[in-house]
Design a binder for these strands. Structure first.
Lengths: 209, 209
DNA sequence: CTTTTTACATGCAACTCTGTATGGATATGT
DNA sequence: ACATATCCATACAGAGTTGCATGTAAAAAG
């Protein structure tokens, strides 16, 4: 055993920072946020608590950094499918944005971090996960309402369905499916079920030809 | 200050047990399960940790007792609306069972305990809240599938909708709405939005006359 | 090459929480 | 009335975690 390992290069330091965040994901997901100590995270990454306290101020700061690696604003999803042919097909734009989101959530990192945020952490320190979830929900619902409003103006929606109702239906359905899937993702594929759900919902909501 | 308060009557003991559970609901909801100590619960109830350890073995046991006060198996909801006229109207039976469940969730105790179970606790000790949620979800979804299957056999469903798909749609929608509402119940009434959602979904899923 | 800063490891004091052991006073059974 | 079991308060030992302070070897700056 060496006397004391010492300073790494800047690239190595960045690598240990990522390793600490990876380790945090692992143990947060396995034991929950509250029950994992900083020493468990450090040992999982092959480090000691000294490394953790150098890179982060405390557990809340580490948690925030972990979330920052998977920031996925809804607006990004819309911009990624920015096809000018879709301005007159808002329902198809919604469909593609949803599928884009489902594809992202299948990536292990997104899935794991969201599972931690939704199912494996409580309020702690200066972090309020419910407030974060609220922000996400409000933003996505607002965006959906806008698109459904456009669809309504183009006479693409059933006459007995308001844009707000359509948006809430779609958002609740996907949110519920998301929650269920995050509990045990091996039970089914969220991409398949999500696609099926979005397709049928949009078909049911669309005005009959 | 008296030297040492001592033994209460059996009724008083049962009352303190209830008071401890009430206090646990309060603080669990406010601070989260992991961050609340047994002493905080005891003091909130005007007792000490001795009372807690007398009535419960540990925090997990207290948590389980708290959940036992709001056990609401889906079958109960169906039995409560056991109207023989509904055996030939399975869609109406589903609707009434859902409304019955929504009405229950509006009761403060049900709402608070479910908010704790879903949003304010992680895995701890011998308690796995995700497994409990899974049980609830599986049971309710299974019951919905049975009823939608009957509806399908009676030609009450659209021909392009399978009973499984209908059940998953309804369950995900209500589950997502439930999660959103539990985050901040003052934002909207789950009874109104849930009723609206159930009505429109069933209308969309029903075969056109 | 020298100095300074970086990137950690190690050690320490303080705090919090748990579980249990003990004690006491009263309700309850007989 | 007496003995006993009940209901709860108090005290204590132990473990675990946090934040900081210190040490240190190498990288980076000059």
């Amino acid at each position: 055993m060496q006397p004391t390992m010492a300073r790494r290069t800047k690239a190595e330091a960045a690598a240990t920072r990522e390793a600490l965040l990876d380790a945090a994901e692992d143990i947060f997901l396995e034991r929950g946020v509250a029950r994992t100590s900083l020493e468990q995270i450090a040992r999982q990454a092959g480090m000691t608590r000294g490394a953790v306290y150098w890179h982060f101020r405390n557990k809340a700061d580490l948690f925030r950094a972990m979330l920052d690696r998977v920031r996925m604003p809804f607006q990004e999803l819309v911009e990624e499918i920015d096809d000018p042919a879709l301005v007159d097909a808002p329902l198809e734009a919604i469909r593609l944005a949803c599928l884009q989101g489902l594809a992202r959530l299948e990536q292990p990192r997104y899935r794991r971090v969201h599972a931690i945020l939704i199912h494996h952490c409580e309020v702690f320190g200066e972090i309020d996960p419910l407030a974060m979830q609220n922000e996400i929900a409000e933003e996505s619902c607002g965006a959906l309402i806008e698109y459904f409003t456009v669809a309504c103006e183009h006479r693409l929606l059933r006459s007995d369905i308001t844009p707000e109702l359509a948006a809430r239906l779609l958002q609740s359905s996907l949110g519920g499916l998301f929650h269920d899937w995050l509990r045990n993702h091996e039970h089914f594929s969220i991409r398949e079920r999500g696609t099926e759900m979005v397709d049928t919902l949009l078909k049911l909501l669309a005005r009959e030809p």
